[in-house]
């Protein structure tokens, strides 16, 4: 499609490659293309304030395509030419997504930009031999396909960074470290534990043990809906790591249903110390620190 195809024609006259031809065409017809695109749904729906705005955006996309065509790499979505319009394309796709369009629909709208520009190219080169026209049209079609790919890539990147942000927020929200007493820290776990979250929980708890020189770390799983073998494994790893650091880990909040699941699954929590509730775990830890809880009223003395 590129330089390999040229030599045949070389004998007649030195001619531009199809990609060069497309590049020159885009520069020549920049204004017309931008005007036509401004009436297409993608531009019309995003730039609602004024048509001039849509035309201006169209010009910058045409410029980018011209630059990519001139570089000869029409099939490469990493072409330097696309860099300048990536942000603008991202804004456009984000606007379409916000108005409820699916990714496939946005992709279709980008595809709709192809026909006007291809028609313009055909109309623009009436005297060119059929073979060369076919090559140029093909190069332009490939280029428009690459534009579509770039748009999809930017859309995916947007979605991914949104997920990343939300994941981080979730991790922050979901792992508070509470200092219950001098030397006792607790992490109440809420929601489903997947591998990544368990990792963060483990690390956060272990850091807290060091920072606060806590001899007891309580993992309260009252808010964890289910305990499967993976979660059980993470619990046991946490307990083992805490022990290696010289502290003791207590798991509290194992609801009856979860206790049954654990037994049913045949999971062995081994040497893990468990207590029914957070209060029981705290009492256990306080006792270990030599600070027993006693009732203040006479006759009610005795520790839990």
């Amino acid at each position: 499609m590129r330089s390999e195809a040229v030599p045949e024609h070389d004998a007649a006259a030195p001619q531009a490659s199809p990609t060069d031809e497309v590049g020159a065409f885009l520069n020549r017809r920049r204004e017309q293309i931008a005007q036509r695109w401004a009436d297409e749904p993608l531009f019309r729906a995003v730039f609602t304030v004024s048509r001039d705005e849509a035309v201006e955006a169209g010009r910058s996309v045409v410029d980018a395509l011209a630059q990519v065509a001139a570089s000869g790499r029409v099939e490469d979505s990493d072409s330097a030419g696309f860099t300048v319009v990536r942000e603008q394309l991202a804004r456009m796709t984000a606007a379409r997504s916000r108005s409820g369009m699916s990714t496939a629909q946005v992709s279709g709208e980008v595809d709709a930009l192809r026909a006007p520009v291809v028609n313009l190219l055909v109309a623009d080169l009436p005297d060119v031999p059929a073979e060369r026209l076919r090559e140029s049209t093909e190069a332009l079609t490939v280029l428009m396909g690459t534009l579509r790919l770039v748009v999809m890539e930017t859309a995916l990147t947007e979605v991914q960074s949104l997920i990343d942000r939300q994941q981080m927020q979730l991790l922050e929200v979901a792992t508070p470290i509470i200092r219950l007493w001098d030397g006792i820290v607790a992490v109440p776990l809420i929601g489903t534990l997947d591998s990544a979250r368990s990792q963060v929980v483990m690390e956060t708890l272990l850091e807290a043990v060091v920072d606060q020189q806590a001899r007891y770390a309580i993992l309260d799983i009252t808010g964890v809906p289910t305990v499967d073998s993976l979660v059980a494994q993470h619990l046991m790893k946490t307990v083992a790591a805490v022990r290696l650091m010289g502290a003791e880990c207590v798991v509290s909040g194992i609801r009856p249903a979860i206790a049954q699941t654990i037994v049913h699954l045949g999971l062995d929590l081994g040497t893990v110390i468990t207590r029914a509730g957070l209060a029981d775990a705290l009492a256990y830890a306080l006792h270990g620190l030599g600070a027993d809880i006693v009732h203040a009223t006479p006759g009610g003395a005795g520790h839990r």
Partner: peptide, 10 residues
């Protein structure tokens, strides 16, 4: 390297 940055590094 983990894709999500750790909360501590924010």
């Amino acid at each position: 390297a983990a894709r999500t940055p750790r909360p501590r590094e924010e």
